[in-house]
């Protein structure tokens, strides 16, 4: 039986892993390669490296970092944050990443999803979406709106219709980040996650809000339907090991790789 996945996200800024609350007040935590290798040893199922300043600075991803991760980490990892075009995707995948993640680029130019899926396979393309709760309206029937630039810019796009569109275009997976829950440590936004997981047939990674190991189990329960739970501060700052997180999930009778 396919296991639910625990994914650790490493936000990278100027070559250092960083962690902030609601994309603000960042502080440096360490070297991405050695932190990734440590989580690999702890038994994490997947890693995400997100270059949080590449887009804003208009530069590509640090390929040397990707290659160094691939030399030490023998599980799938995805890279996002600075993907500008197909060539960037190709370089990241050839350097040893399993997947690439696109977020605001896909909002600006949705065809990057279909082009990427065609060139490298659907399973390589992860759509990252940042979502804000705005209340249901005629133009935003789900009550959730897609936002970009770390939540600073609204797009007018409904979260559910964007998720469906991304699946049609060939995205292999959706990483769903709740801006409201991010950094609050009160748990993942379950209503949002369940709504998106039901709207698409591709895997959904829940992101934003984990404050205790039980929160991962909550979002991975069949009634919510996330396929993976993403954490950052739980492991980076609060000191939980991947094993402790998985034990809490397994205790709920949910299959994980121990």
């Amino acid at each position: 039986m396919l296991a639910k996945r625990v994914i650790v996200c490493l936000d990278v800024r100027n070559g250092q892993v960083t962690k902030g609350v609601k994309f603000k007040e960042n502080r440096d935590l360490g070297d991405p390669v050695s932190m990734g290798a440590e989580y690999y040893r702890q038994g994490v199922d997947e890693l995400v490296f997100y270059d949080i300043t590449a887009s804003a600075e208009g530069r590509g991803i640090d390929i040397e970092m990707v290659r160094n991760v691939a030399r030490e980490v023998f599980i799938p990892f995805s890279v996002g944050g600075g993907i500008r075009n197909l060539q960037d995707m190709r370089e990241v995948l050839l350097a040893g990443a399993e997947k690439v993640s696109v977020n605001s680029l896909a909002v600006r130019d949705p065809s990057i999803i279909s082009h990427g899926a065609k060139a490298f396979g659907n399973q390589c393309i992860v759509l990252g979406m940042d979502v804000l709760k705005v209340g249901a309206s005629e133009s935003l029937p789900s009550g959730y709106e897609v936002v970009v630039k770390g939540g600073r810019e609204r797009t007018g796009i409904d979260a559910v219709s964007w998720a469906r569109r991304a699946e049609e275009l060939g995205a292999g997976e959706i990483c769903l980040n709740s801006i409201d829950a991010d950094g609050m440590k009160t748990g993942y936004e379950l209503d949002l996650t369940s709504m998106i997981a039901r709207a698409v047939t591709i895997p959904v990674i829940a992101s934003g809000g984990a404050g205790r190991p039980e929160h991962l189990a909550d979002v991975l329960e069949p009634r919510i339907g996330a396929d993976a739970a993403l954490v950052a501060s739980l492991t980076h700052i609060d000191g939980y090991t991947v094993g402790a997180l998985k034990a809490a999930i397994a205790q709920r009778g949910i299959a994980v790789r121990i």
Partner: peptide, 13 residues
């Protein structure tokens, strides 16, 4: 429904 997703992606024994 909900049917298993295709591709089969992830960790399996």
């Amino acid at each position: 429904e909900p049917r298993p997703k295709i591709p089969h992606m992830g960790w399996n024994p």
